[in-house]
Design a binder for these strands. Structure first.
Lengths: 220, 220
DNA sequence: CCTAGAATAAAACAGTCGTTTGATTTAAAC
DNA sequence: GTTTAAATCAAACGACTGTTTTATTCTAGG
């Protein structure tokens, strides 16, 4: 039936795109891996690019919904006060990092794909991700502003920017145990995901809270 | 003469790879942009992949040499003591961020390319970058350990890992003014690079120095 | 049973890919 | 002026690209 064919193709595409990239993965590779006919790809999606769009929506919709749900929940629990900074960060970085360990929902494969899409300035690919990511940023920025009232909007933006970078890089390398082990010189055996979150959130909290913003320049 | 042909191709390849990625950029696009014959590519480099290797070495060698030079210099200035954490970070994140503003040495184009190579799990591409990056990590890890003696090796690795992520993401988006302006909602007009470094280094210093490593888990 | 429409299948479309070939031009050495 | 090697050139190689076409199978609904 149709549902299996479509989902088989999405899963195969996710895996192959994550391994080889968008351009280097051909429609034939996808249909072969999914064990469906070549023409099924254009029948169900219309084109290779539309398949990419559907693939990201398929995975990103639940992920970003979870982030917003958690933030709503933490804000409700906090009442009038802004939630603790750690809670906001948990809602932001927790879901993707935990998702990276859930094979049923894409897991490490999709995380690799996401990391790639962030830096793949391909004509449309990156825009797809930003379209999905925009509402999340617009919701978390004022939440962070309330929790960090001492920061100017510009300072807050930069720190949020650095935060996204630390998260994205962590998610990405978390998807490849071999790479992590290699980079750490064997020190890190990639304990369970909760420990990663427990390290990342204090790291980011300390950085976001720090008051020393622009110290005197040291002449180089 | 040969030197111009080779360099023209490297510059054209850098620009096109940064715009479209490795797979989506054909040899014909490169040779057309460089205004050389199609066969010149295989004559001078042997293959498309060998051109990629030469391209990264061409740009990364001077960059990483600069990082190590700065660290050597700061350590010499500090004598017996370890250099200030801010100095170590300056040596690590300063050169690539400043390079991203130097059009003569690749500038934003190469930074985009570098960001892409980090997440492009293409067969060999990523390995090329890690081969170049490895010695830098091995030199900076003990330097950071001396400046942060209260951190266990594992904790230090994770924090260094997050640091690399914040840097990489910053470098990458710094390469695209439009993207930065869009993400910030117009708040950030991307002031000069020194200001970016001046924001990133205190951000990372506070995060690296913080003592609260693993707070009690909040049940989700 | 029969028929509409959804789904799958095999084959071909024009085009581009990385690479190679063989001939021709350029530049310097003797 | 001849020789030799480096460099450039046009043309072609087979393989693979995304997409389309045409035909066949499957699966309800009447």
């Amino acid at each position: 039936m149709m549902l299996n064919t479509k989902e088989n193709m999405l899963r195969a595409a996710e895996s192959l795109f994550a391994q080889h990239g968008f351009s280097a993965t051909s429609v034939r590779m996808i249909t072969t891996e999914a064990d469906v006919n070549l023409a099924a790809m254009h029948y169900h999606f219309g084109s290779k690019e539309k398949l990419i769009v559907e693939l990201f929506a398929w995975r990103l919709d639940p992920l970003n919904r979870k982030r917003l749900e958690l933030l709503d929940q933490f804000e409700a629990e906090a009442g009038e006060e802004p939630p603790a900074l750690e809670k906001i960060l948990e809602a932001f970085v927790g879901p993707p990092i935990r998702l990276s360990r859930d094979p049923e929902r894409g897991g490490a494969l999709f995380m690799r794909l996401l990391g790639r899409a962030f830096t793949d300035p391909r004509d449309r690919t990156r825009q797809i991700v930003y379209d999905q990511f925009g509402p999340v940023i617009q919701r978390f920025t004022p939440a962070l502003a309330r929790a960090l009232p001492h920061l100017s909007p510009e300072e807050l933006f930069w720190r949020f920017h650095f935060t996204v970078g630390a998260m994205a890089h962590t998610i990405y390398t978390l998807a490849d145990e071999h790479q992590l082990h290699q980079l750490s010189g064997g020190v890190c055996h990639m304990a369970d995901v909760d420990h990663t979150v427990d390290r990342l959130i204090p790291f980011l909290s300390a950085a976001l809270r720090s008051r020393s913003s622009c110290p005197k320049r040291s002449e180089s």
